[in-house]
């Protein structure tokens, strides 16, 4: 999942010609200080990840559900926390279906 998110962030940065001094890792921030995408970039990222996961798993996924909104710590903090969150959602969906 981390790979998928990294690729998505990279594609969005390529659209804006933004160059990072360091590569994109699990610790790359998506919100707050040092974030690599602006607010529009974050929306694009979330939509892109939803689209990629849907293609990958053949199941629609919504990252902005009540669970994401109610968490005290945003799952969108870093590339790594987003990857973990997406993985959790996929597991929850699988569990619900089984």
């Amino acid at each position: 999942m981390l790979e998928l998110i990294v690729k998505s962030v990279q594609d969005i940065l390529n659209l804006t010609d933004k160059k990072l001094a360091e590569g994109i890792t699990a610790d790359t921030p998506l919100v707050g200080a040092g974030r690599v995408v602006d607010s529009i970039g974050l929306v694009t990222l979330i939509v892109d990840v939803e689209n990629r996961v849907a293609e990958h798993t053949n199941r629609p996924i919504s990252l902005m559900d009540d669970r994401a909104m109610s968490q005290t710590r945003s799952p969108f903090r870093t590339v790594g926390t987003l990857a973990e969150y997406v993985q959790e959602l996929i597991h929850a969906d699988l569990k619900e279906r089984s």
């Binding site: 689209n51 849907a54 293609e55 053949n58 199941r59 629609p60 919504s62």
Partner: peptide, 10 residues
Amino acid sequence: VVAMFADIRK
């Protein structure tokens, strides 16, 4: 609605 769009995407 989400399911319909998933099918349109696919």
